[in-house]
Write a protein that binds this DNA or RNA. Structure first.
Ligand SMILES: NC(=O)c1ccc[n+]([C@@H]2O[C@H](COP(=O)([O-])OP(=O)(O)OC[C@H]3O[C@@H](n4cnc5c(N)ncnc54)[C@H](O)[C@@H]3O)[C@@H](O)[C@H]2O)c1
Ligand SMILES: NC(=O)c1ccc[n+]([C@@H]2O[C@H](COP(=O)([O-])OP(=O)(O)OC[C@H]3O[C@@H](n4cnc5c(N)ncnc54)[C@H](O)[C@@H]3O)[C@@H](O)[C@H]2O)c1
Lengths: 208, 208
DNA sequence: TTTACATTGTGATAACAAACACATAAATTA
DNA sequence: TAATTTATGTGTTTGTTATCACAATGTAAA
């Protein structure tokens, strides 16, 4: 291992390794080779080893990796040892699906607040979280800091909501609305955009 | 313009250009420079010009691009002139959100079938589509071919459903379940995976 | 018509990422 | 204990993508 700039693509693969390892731990496996992992993930073993080597020498030559140890290492690299507070804006289909997903997985991502502008849902309780009015987002002084905001509101409202979330101090945003957000560059933004994905998908499907 | 391999990253940006252009057309704009588009999208103007130049000379030097013409060109490149038939598997939160989104946008993506295994929803009608039992997916001889399948079922069922969809002849799959699909390589797969995205997001948020 | 200016298209270069070849080291076998 | 096998870690090479510099070409003003 050598100090070196770590490719973004490497970081993006780590969560895949992490989840796969997690499942194998649950299945009671002990040791794992890069070749075996590569068969599960469809990622070449040399790629996996190179990715891991940016962070340390986790394996044993001739043997492979200690599954639990490697899992813990990746957990630590990704900052998944601590838990992260999440606020959800827009508690309709997508918003509920996410509350469902994160609550069920108790994955270290805690939903600490949920907001909606629809009076019919404000005040109701989902998974132990009381849905607040969006104005509360603007004004509330949260007990716990919110680390990440997830936007699942109507596309026309996404930008305003994003700005509110940034004002509240979130460091990252996941945006399900097909709306480009113009945020300070220190805020990490993940755009989950079905229509765009379909767009490039049909390019490739059509060219065969 | 010259015959040349087109970067995948270029293809992935085209839908962003496409949507932005669409909005500007609606706003009644006529002409657009790469610099202006770059301000909307946060993509460098040279990048935009290079991307477009793989497909032809669409602009006029000193002037810019004819908005409508460029829009039509990109539509044609991405194969969005024709419409695409989509089947949805799993009509719960995510499935409904997608039916909602695609139905509302009438975007050239037509939902022609929807499947679920839950007897309580099978037979009910959403947006004019009757939810069918998953067994129907295995047996039905569809009137219209299904081009793309969207998977929004429970993670443990995703693989089986994916195989059914492939048997039915889909050329591409969008998978919302956090499950890796092992499909023939000629099937294009888009993995929409919130947990993985959160994984790499917190890496970067944590390292500041 | 000439000059100044705006904007595109592209070859060349730089930055980034993946793949490869092989040195290294542990385990197993003879 | 030597030879063989297995599997990691990494410097080098190859491939891909972004950026840059600038020639080409159009518009508008002098
Ligand atoms: N990325 C994807 O895969 C994908 C798929 C489907 C839909 N979407 C998008 O996700 C978003 C949510 O879709 P949906 O079907 O779950 O929701 P929806 O469109 O049914 O409703 C949006 C919800 O947000 C609330 N809302 C609207 N404005 C708000 C505001 N300013 N503050 C707080 N809450 C507000 C509404 O009251 C409603 O509950 C939409 O933008 C949609 O286009 C994305
Ligand atoms: N990518 C993301 O952003 C994201 C976010 C939230 C949830 N998810 C995932 O999306 C999927 C759907 O989540 P949800 O909350 O909409 O649904 P859900 O988990 O509430 O229910 C799944 C639906 O699929 C149906 N189903 C289950 N097995 C099926 C089968 N074999 N054939 C047909 N239908 C079947 C069920 O009857 C139910 O209607 C889950 O896998 C979830 O983990 C993804």
């Amino acid at each position: 291992m050598k100090e070196q700039k770590i490719p973004k693509e490497t970081i993006k693969r780590l969560p895949l390794y992490y989840r796969c390892l997690n499942r194998l731990v649950v299945l009671g496996k002990d040791t794992l080779s890069s070749t075996e992992l590569s068969e599960y993930l469809g990622i070449k073993p040399t790629q996996i080893r190179k990715d891991l080597s940016y962070f340390g020498d986790f394996g044993t030559r001739g043997v492979g990796y200690d599954l639990r140890k490697l899992f813990k290492e990746i957990e630590s690299i990704l900052n998944l040892e601590r838990s992260w507070n999440i606020a959800i804006a827009g508690v309709s289909n997508i918003g509920c699906a996410i509350m469902d997903l994160l609550d069920f997985n108790h994955s270290g991502f805690n939903i600490v607040a949920a907001f909606d502008s629809d009076n019919r849902v404000v005040g109701s309780n989902i998974y132990g979280i009381t849905i607040q009015d969006l104005d509360n987002l603007k004004e509330c002084t949260a007990d716990e800091p919110i680390d990440i905001g997830i936007i699942a509101v109507d596309p026309v409202d996404a930008r305003e909501v994003a700005n509110c979330l940034v004002d509240k101090g979130v460091k990252g945003i996941v945006n399900f609305a097909p709306t480009l957000l113009n945020l300070p560059k220190e805020i990490e933004v993940v755009q989950m955009d079905l229509t765009s994905e379909l767009g490039w998908l049909v390019f490739y499907i059509g060219h065969r």
